[in-house]
Design a protein around this nucleic acid. Structure first.
Length: 495
RNA sequence: GGUCCUGUGGCCGAGUGGUUAGGCAGAGCUCUGCAAAAGCUUCCACAGCGGUUCGAAUCCGCUCGGGACCUCCA
């Protein structure tokens, strides 16, 4: 079964066929490093990390480009032509680049914790001013952009007369021309729907670059078009980002690239939905963000505890990426417990060995396992339904535990089935979903605990429950839980 | 106001018209020196009202509720 992805451009699930196989070009709108990443930011980068991982698994040679927006944009177009980054920099009395560096590092750190793979290229907006200016010049030359007082605007009305502006986001241009909100500085534009490609920098603006139109800074949408074009060409396979970027950002990207490159940039547009808090989108405008460092530490009024990065990743992957996901400490706690159970079963599976059996004694179970495992691929192929993959894994958990406890006979399933289960489970959990056991410990700790287990076993065999309980109790206080198995073995895990 | 999405059991969520989603929480049982874990069983559901259909959470209409975008936003 082939991979099918929901294409926001056509509003349909389509079979994924790369433009130039085996190569795949993927562009994802990256972070604006004027502040710390919050939980909402984890959604797209984890979502597209799974997309990236799966495409790699399928054998594609993927170039994954994710930008860093370090040039900033004006807070509200026209009203205050002040760069976001420079305005905060003034406030904190530091260089803009100092902030950029700080938050870029923090971003990288947080997403390493979340086990996202690094993109192939992570271009910065400030590093591509030349390319952006070049693209703007092309747009002016083509007659789709005009210069006013040192700023350059894209002529949406003209574009719309020849192309479909609004196809991606479902806008009607006539409405846009009418209903766009009244903002200061609009008088420079020919039409309200026009957007800035280059803004003249007022004197107080710190980040500024020389351009053919005077000193200024790039508009919001041009950086992605310029960098995507530079590294992926005029036409590439996947463009991803949050749904909130669909309009005007992605719509405008399409317009810019269509004029400059004579092609709609991306074949497939993929948009992840939002993380909500009490039903409302987590975001700047609502002042309801929880930063990732707060998530990890638990240092936030809405959090009853800290959550490991893997729990956050798991929490996000338990929902389909195009659905909203409502955050609560309770939901995270539930995810944490579920994940622990899943990983404990996974540890068991990795160590489990069964005797050779060509024919399973329990044909029903054997075919059930085969079905559940085969569906991993079927579900991920269905527009990356990670929720269903995880649900199947959970259905297998009792089987694994029962095999360990001897409740299921070792030869109940065939060797081939067992081998497939082990391999697929590992590949999908670790390689594709990118989940790993957060409680992995050092060889040293393992050795120490193994020793304590030996001592405790001896005590138990002598019915010295005082000693055995003491070991268990003290370890519990240290966050390590000892569990007596049916067969007399003792296993342990972190609380 | 315009465009669009959405409403699933205590919570989070998957659902292609007919079959158990899954996780967490709750209840009972088994195992067990105790505990925990695990296993088995189980309770609780598709906002409301109509319609289409042999059959609807799933399609259509209306009502009510929630949300997103239209402005920086993942």
């Amino acid at each position: 079964m082939a991979l099918r992805v929901y294409n926001s451009l056509t509003k349909e699930k389509e079979e994924f066929i790369p433009i130039n196989p085996p190569h795949v070009g993927m562009y994802v709108c990256g972070p604006t490093v004027s502040g710390e990443s919050h939980l909402g930011h984890a959604r797209p980068y984890i979502t597209f990390d799974v997309v990236y991982r799966y495409l790699l698994y399928l054998g594609y040679k993927v170039r994954y480009v994710r930008n860093i927006t370090d040039a900033g944009h004006f807070e509200e177009e026209g009203r205050q032509a002040e760069d976001k980054i420079s305005s905060k920099a003034l406030l904190e009395k530091v260089e803009p680049m100092e902030l950029v560096h700080k938050y870029t590092s923090l971003f990288h750190w947080a997403f390493r914790q979340l086990n996202t793979l690094e993109p192939s290229i992570e271009p910065t907006a400030t590093g591509h001013i030349v390319e952006q200016i070049g693209m703007i010049e092309q747009l002016i030359k083509a007659g789709y952009a005009y210069v006013v007082n040192g700023s350059v605007y894209f002529d949406v009305k003209k574009y719309a007369s020849n192309y479909d502006y609004g196809k991606l986001s479902g806008r009607v241009v006539d409405d846009l021309l009418e209903t766009t909100r009244e903002l200061e500085g609009q008088e420079e534009k020919r039409n309200k729907a026009d957007f800035a490609l280059w803004k003249m920098a007022p004197p107080q603006h710190i980040m500024r670059w020389k351009s053919p139109w005077g000193e200024g800074f790039p508009g919001w949408h041009i950086e992605c078009s310029a960098m995507a074009t530079k590294y992926l060409g005029s036409r590439f396979d996947i463009h991803g980002g949050g749904m909130d970027l669909m309009f005007p950002h992605h719509e405008s990207e399409i317009a810019q690239s269509t004029i400059c490159n004579h092609a709609s940039p991306a074949k497939y547009w993929m948009h992840n939905n939002m993380i909500t808090v009490n039903g409302k989108k987590m975001g700047k405008s609502y002042n309801n963000q929880i930063t990732l460092t707060q998530m990890f530490s638990g240092n936030h009024p809405l959090l009853t505890q800290g959550f490991s990065p893997m729990v956050i990743r798991f929490f996000i992957l338990q929902t389909h990426y195009r659905s909203t996901l409502d955050f609560s400490s309770e939901a995270l706690t539930a995810a944490e417990k579920g994940m622990k159970r899943l990983f404990e079963a996974f540890e068991v599976l990795k160590k489990l060995e069964i005797p050779d059996a060509e024919v399973p004694s329990d044909k029903e179970l054997d075919s059930k396992i085969n079905k559940l495992v085969d569906e991993f691929e079927e579900f991920i192929n269905d527009d990356f339904n990670t929720a269903k993959v995880l649900a199947n894994m959970f259905e297998i958990v009792p089987v694994i535990n029962s095999m360990k406890d001897g409740l299921i006979k070792p030869y109940a399933i065939s060797t081939a089935t067992f081998k497939k289960l082990k391999e697929s489970f590992t590949i999908f959990l670790e390689q594709i979903l990118g989940l790993k056991d957060p409680s992995e410990s050092s060889a040293q700790l393992n050795g120490i605990i193994d020793l304590l287990i030996e001592i405790r076993k001896e005590a138990k065999s002598k019915k010295d429950f005082f000693t055995s309980d003491k070991i268990r109790k003290q370890l519990t206080e240290l966050g390590i839980e000892m569990k007596d198995e049916k067969d007399g073995n003792i296993s342990w895990s972190r609380l």
